[in-house]
Write a protein that binds this DNA or RNA. Structure first.
Lengths: 205, 205
DNA sequence: CCTACCGATCGGTAGG
DNA sequence: CCTACCGATCGGTAGG
């Protein structure tokens, strides 16, 4: 598949949006990457915000496409959550500019578009929440776990990767995914501890 | 203690830097909050960047003052990590504008200042890393835990709070701190499982 | 896709 | 702390 000019522009823009932020990136900066005059961009793009909008929508599509099928699967919650962690990390590390635009820069969209993105983000987060809820109900996760706060906790850690990840770094996405999944599921909990079941408190409802 | 004009300006600026980002905040925006003319700010401030610099330095001081003594204490690693989690969260939620400026907006500083902040951030992160290392060595945390990646993981989740926390929301900082500390230390690990000690693999060195 | 150009706004200064 | 103002840069348009 050939990359259209429009695609090239979006890609260049997303890289700059990640590096400098949307507000600090000028249309002339974007044009320069492609050896164009600033005004020439407007042959392909209606506005700077329109560019951000396209990038954000594409990123949202990718996150959903990667995670939704896993969330909807039949497997046990811990297994699904582990797979969702890997899928999310692969999307983030696969296109950092896109990911950061969706995760951080979307707030520079117009109010209407911002509302639309906020809804997609909520829907996405809800998938994590629901799997966590499933896991609590099935007894896989600790009783009393708050699905909402826990999903936020997970996604914050996950989204942070978009900021520090370097493609030429030591850790490849799969290693990060494995370790993060371990941490989410078991935390820092140490070696197997002595029997922890409190028989005295056991009651049958 | 009276709040100096300079302090008022810094506070107004930090609120706007969080809401709109440094690049999208004009000096006239800041002045307007205090019912001043844009140019009048320069009676108190050398430059817009200087304002960001002051805010970032103050935030860095606060994080260090809150966390360093705990990290250096004698108590067991899990206990220290729990206390550091609470301290960090209290600093973040206590002044969101300051925190976001230190955590996100510092990249708009001049190269020299950015380098200085990067060093402080590394030093801060190292305290978490060292406590994690201590915990692994003492057998409190799972063998094979990577202190570097795990500290990054923790701090990403912790710093995300600066983005979603609302002072008028349901969760107060202490509740968040308790739950986050539980999640960091135990993850989502469910109810006590059947004895997991693998006697076959036991060897005495 | 370029040249030429627009009004608006930016951070900041001069002089009081 | 204000008025008046500066050059630079911004997103974007006209016309080819």
């Amino acid at each position: 598949m050939v990359e259209t000019r429009r695609q090239q522009i979006e890609n260049a823009a997303s890289v700059l949006f990640r590096e400098r932020g949307y507000a600090a990136t000028s249309v002339r900066d974007i044009a320069q990457v492609l050896n164009l005059q600033g005004a020439s961009l407007y042959a392909h793009v209606a506005s700077k915000e329109d560019l951000l909008w396209s990038i954000v929508e594409r990123a949202a599509d990718r996150f959903e496409a990667a995670v939704a099928p896993i969330a909807a699967a039949e497997s046990p919650a811990p297994q699904r959550l582990r797979a969702m962690t890997g899928a999310h990390i692969r999307v983030v590390t696969g296109d950092l500019g896109n990911a950061v635009s969706f995760l951080d820069e979307w707030r520079f969209l117009s109010p209407e578009r911002r509302t639309a993105v906020a809804a997609r983000r909520r829907r996405y987060e809800r998938r994590f929440r629901e799997v966590i809820r499933d896991g609590v109900e099935a007894g896989d996760f600790a009783r009393g776990t708050d699905p909402r706060l826990t999903a936020t906790w997970m996604l914050s850690a996950l989204n942070g990767i978009a900021v520090w990840y370097r493609p030429d770094g030591e850790l490849d996405p799969e290693s990060i995914a494995d370790r993060y999944a371990d941490l989410f599921l078991s935390g820092l909990s140490g070696p197997p501890r002595p029997p922890a079941i409190d028989f005295d408190r056991r009651t049958d409802p």
